[in-house]
Amino acid sequence: MAFLFKRNPKTPPDLIRALNEQVVKLDQTIDNKKYQDEAARYLTQVKLILHGDDDNDPQPDQISQLAQEVYSSDCLYLLIYSLKKLDFDSRKDVLILFSTLLRRQTGNKSPTVDYLINHKPEILIMLLRGPENQEIGLISGQILRDCIKFEVINRFILHHQIFWNYFKYCQISIFEIATDAFTTLHDLLTIHKKLVSEFLASNYDTFTVQINQLLQSKNYVTKRQSVRLLAELVLQRQNQYFLNKYFDDTNNLKLIMLLLSDKSKNLQIEAFHIFKFFVAKPKKSQKVLDILIKNKENFLELFKNFDITYANDSNLIEERDYILGEIQKLPDIDKIRAA
């Protein structure tokens, strides 16, 4: 430890104050290389206090002092506000600072989570807007996903209007940004299951419109990711209220049928994992039943050629055969018309 002090004479609070000073200057000048380097140097020292190195283990009391100063000086706010102006590697150090502080607990509380929710929710909003900026989109996404692990933060985001932007962010033309935004969207909707089931129940209409738009994307990757996400939500029995509505809606059925006949084999299989519930649902809405009956021949044709052998999944084959059987039991249109 003495060694650490010799090389790094600043106390943790001093270090944070020095870092803040540089970060503030970063924001005021155009030619900021000097401040960038200074900030990078201090961030490296912060990282050393948090994680130690080969010769020094991290010291809890130092970390605690550091954390106190970070909260009281709004250091995280300053760093995120100026994230774009920090250099590439410093941004990774900000991620480390953030995730280490998030994991830190006093009692059974996370003071960082408390700080983010009750004192500076602006930080979360800035992070949520990350995908709007190509340079910091990925790093913001990584920090954000660390935050989402805490239910209160996930709840805050789901109840904020900005959440819906994620359905647009994941269609941005920059591949990494779009797919990273999708990863965040996925986490927001899958990690805290109870929270999500309440959310889906009270936002059925908006959510369905949004996810259905993604399913119709021209972008193959967006399509595959969104149908996979939907399949995951559909398997969650907690989402029952949402599911009952979803599987009664013919518009949803149509979109899934279109995916079922997509030229991509993978999309067909993903879609099948949703389609099967339309067929297997005990009490179907009349309209859903109508569409199934009208397309009986189409389904039989489709499943005749439904190539799942390469997926090598015996469950899938069993399910296909069951669904095929159920469809065969549907009445024939001609007979109904004749009657």
Binding site: S261, V279, K281, K283, K287, I293, K294, N298, L302, N305
Partner: peptide
Amino acid sequence: SPSSKIQWDFGTQKSFHVCSSSSPL
């Protein structure tokens, strides 16, 4: 995939009432 040629029928104007209101499935 050959299935991409399938023409779905999404018309809902006609209903087919079978087996009273319960599903046959």
